[in-house]
Design a binder for these strands. Structure first.
Lengths: 201, 201
DNA sequence: CAAATAATTGACCGGCCGGCCAGTTAGGGC
DNA sequence: GCCCTAACTGGCCGGCCGGTCAATTATTTG
């Protein structure tokens, strides 16, 4: 009775390890995570982790790759359901990105850890996305719907960075006197940002 | 010949440990730093570290406290040499903050580590600074030199967060297609930001 | 159905981690 | 000068870290 499951499912095992590892790495960072702790959390033996991933470093790589791929496809999906390039669409993109980060705090922390490691991998994954977004802003600029004296990539960078830092440094800013809620901040940021990228009449 | 220094200077020893610890913690983060490595870097015995700071955790606290105090006084100094509140002064504040971060990469990384730890201490140190800055923006708003429909604290947050993330996530964004230099980005950000906070004619 | 392959286990390892302690030495107060 | 405090040293320790290995068992292949 109560004997261990006899059936084997290597893919599920890998997934269990990856899931548990992602949770721990995201929470504590690479070097603070202990394989013994991870093994307990994933309900596998420590040896099994080595069997499937070789080493702690390679497991970390696998975790990052999987998470970034998820991030990338999610962003790509958001992007592809976009309509005609105009200023309103830019506003919706900012809102979508902000809410995506709000709903995926793990992604935010993962970014922070990899930035501290100097890992440029996640940035490279963005190339398509940023390239397409910049092209899209360029078109809007040519239509006269956005001011033309700003580098389109910088437009993206400004809103991406503001949204990211809002969630990365929440513990830092949330105690600031007068600081509002997520939505209040987003609204004020959009006021500044949209006014800033709109051409003068 | 070549004998160890006989003279004792506990304050200098503390400083040597703190300096070496700051360098290592900033680079690698708390848990990746080994006390043996730190002892070598600071040219002291491991025991001496424990003698002066008690434990690795308390040393980390001491490092953060000292660095944040330095940060705070540097910012306070910048702030106090400011003149009459107007829009140009806001622009200069953004530039000053941006260049401060560029010239103090250690501060940027320290912020990132503490954010990941959920440490709200650095945010609390900012209270005075942010309170004063917000008050200052409020005055400028009342003079009609900045638009009045935006929370002053959010104005500060937007530029602080953009500057911070620019340097924190440099490895992420610098490979983006079309991304410009520090100065080019700052210029474009200022175009958006200043236009966004200026009242319509 | 046998043989090969892959998944899984538990025991084990060398190394080093943070921390401790007994002892030594310098310096400041009296 | 003497003593007490505090700075400083070297050696040591228990524990656990990431990683290995031989043995066992399920699954796939042919």
């Amino acid at each position: 009775m109560n004997q261990k499951i006899q059936t084997r499912d290597p893919e599920l095992t890998r997934a269990r390890i990856l899931d548990a590892a992602e949770a721990l790495f995201v929470e504590q960072g690479f070097s603070a995570v202990k394989l013994s702790e991870l093994a307990r959390a994933a309900e596998v033996t420590k040896s099994l982790i080595h069997h499937h991933f070789g080493s702690k470093e390679r497991l970390w790589e696998a975790v990052k790759n999987r998470a970034f791929e998820r991030y990338f496809t999610a962003q790509m999906a958001l992007f592809e359901e976009a309509g005609e390039p105009d200023a309103l669409l830019l506003r919706h993109s900012v809102e979508a990105y902000f809410h995506f980060l709000r709903d995926n705090p793990g992604v935010v922390r993962l970014f922070a850890w990899t930035h501290l490691e100097g890992d440029s991998h996640c940035g490279e994954l963005d190339h398509q996305l940023v390239g397409a977004g910049a092209e899209w802003i360029r078109q809007t600029q040519q239509r006269g719907l956005l001011r033309q004296d700003i580098n389109p990539t910088h437009v993206i960078a400004v809103f991406v960075m503001t949204c990211t830092q809002w969630f990365e440094a929440k513990c830092h800013h949330e105690s600031w006197p007068g600081m509002g809620s997520d939505e209040a901040f987003l609204e004020d940021f959009l006021k500044i940002f949209m006014e800033g990228v709109t051409p003068r009449d």
